[in-house]
Structure formats: structure tokens, C-alpha cells
């Protein structure tokens, strides 16, 4: 039993190595920005342990630095992380035989990258030690990267020369590109971008993301239903 557990951990580590090499530097970028936004060490690391969501954390440091309140912070996080609903729903059938607490523990650590790994490998008889090892090592890398970034941030006077302030836009681009491979999704993304920018320029600089998302996701779903009905 002991040795099969260790073997599972080892296999999990091997699978998750590419994600670790990504989470260390991006976590580092978050840590530096957290330090520059005035978070204390405890809060900076607590966010990586408790929230564990790269884009939400990077947006969060920006909001805190900009003097936003807790409500804006929590609401923005909710909208940005709503996409996990889909990933969780997609994996649900494969977790049907698991105990409830195991499902909860597993799903709490779902990210874009670990979802991509699990969706390729998870079946009814994948060893659980391996599955949990993937999640655990990925988050450990994220937390370690954050901690290192925070400590380094204290020594850094400038973040602009290394392009750290572009970490978040670049991350959005990397997440967005695979989502807009289908024409209708691309069209709706362009609409959401245009609507979001228009709202910002008109001075609705707080609600622009949620309004643009709800309007354009609803239009997209409506269009798709309409197209399906016409072609069937």
C-alpha cells in the first residue's frame, strides 16, 4: 500500500512537471505585484493558498493597489472564475464513484492548466494518489513562486524593465486564444471587447466586465441555438 502510494505520487509529479515550470514564474510575477500593491507577506501567500487562481489574483493585486473595496474584489473574482463551473461539470461524470469529500478536495484545486491535464488522463480507474499528487504539486509550485516573488519584490525598485506589468494581459491572451477558434466565439469575443472598451470610455469603469460578459454570452448562446434550429 505504502509503496503504491509513493509510486502514484511519483507518476503524478512526472505528469505535472510542465505545469510546475509555468506556475513558478507566473506565481513569482504575482508575488512581486502583491508586494508592490501593499499586501503583507501573510496575505500575499494566503491568497495563493486559499484562492489559487492566477488571473483573479493578478487582477486582485491591481484592484487593491487602486484602492478598490472588498465587494469589487470579490465580485470581479467571481466573474473571472465562473469559467471553472464548466471544467468542474465536464469532469463530474468521471468522479461519480469517488467519495464526496474526495471530489470536493479534488475540485477545489481545479485550474485551467490542471483541468487540461486531468481531462486528458482521468478515467474511472486512474489511481487517486496520482491525481491528487498532480493538484498538490501544482499548487505547491504556485505558492512557492508567490513566496519567492514577494521576497524578491522587496528588493526590486522597478517592475517595468522586465515587463512584469504585462504578465496579466499576456495571460489573458494565452487563455483567450484557444477559446476563439470557432467563428461565433471569436465574433462574441470581439463584441465583448468592443462593448467593454465603450463602457470604460463612457465612465462605467466598474461594471464593464460583467455587463459585456452577460450581454455577449447571452447573444452567443442565442445565435448558436438559432443556427442549430435552422440547420436541423
Amino acid at each position: 500500500m505504502q509503496s503504491s502510494m509513493a509510486a502514484g505520487l511519483g507518476r503524478g509529479l512526472k505528469i505535472v512537471v510542465p505545469v510546475i515550470f509555468g506556475y513558478l514564474p507566473v506565481g513569482f510575477a504575482y508575488g512581486v505585484l502583491a508586494e508592490k500593491s501593499g499586501l503583507c507577506l501573510f496575505n500575499a501567500v494566503a491568497m495563493s493558498v486559499m484562492v489559487y487562481a492566477g488571473s483573479a489574483q493578478l487582477i486582485g493585486t491591481g484592484l487593491i493597489a487602486g484602492g478598490a473595496g472588498a465587494a469589487a474584489l470579490i465580485f470581479t473574482t467571481f466573474v473571472v472564475n465562473l469559467r471553472h463551473l464548466l471544467m468542474s461539470a465536464a469532469l463530474a461524470p468521471r468522479l461519480a464513484a469517488w467519495k464526496k469529500w474526495q471530489v470536493a478536495l479534488f475540485a477545489a484545486e481545479l485550474t485551467d492548466e490542471t483541468f487540461a491535464l486531468h481531462s486528458l488522463r482521468l478515467t474511472a480507474d486512474t489511481p487517486k494518489a496520482e491525481t491528487f499528487a498532480i493538484n498538490l504539486f501544482a499548487q505547491a509550485a504556485w505558492v512557492l513562486g508567490s513566496l519567492a516573488g514577494f521576497l524578491a519584490g522587496g528588493q526590486m525598485t522597478q517592475i517595468r524593465p522586465i515587463g512584469l506589468d504585462y504578465a496579466l494581459p499576456a495571460m489573458f491572451i494565452a487563455l483567450l486564444a484557444p477559446q476563439v477558434m470557432k467563428p461565433l466565439y471569436l465574433a462574441m469575443a470581439v463584441c465583448a471587447a468592443a462593448l467593454s472598451v465603450t463602457l470604460v470610455l463612457l465612465g462605467f469603469g466598474r461594471a464593464h466586465v460583467i455587463i459585456a460578459t452577460i450581454v455577449c454570452a447571452t447573444c452567443g448562446a442565442g445565435f448558436e441555438a438559432w443556427i442549430n434550429r435552422r440547420s436541423s
Partner: peptide, 14 residues
């Protein structure tokens, strides 16, 4: 929900 990732990311990025 399948439209949320593309639209929310575009709305944040633009």
C-alpha cells in the same frame, strides 16, 4: 457557460 470564457477574457483584456 461555454461563451463565458471567451467573452469575459475579451472584456478584461481589451
Amino acid at each position: 457557460l461555454s461563451f463565458v470564457p471567451a467573452t469575459v477574457l475579451a472584456a478584461l483584456l481589451a
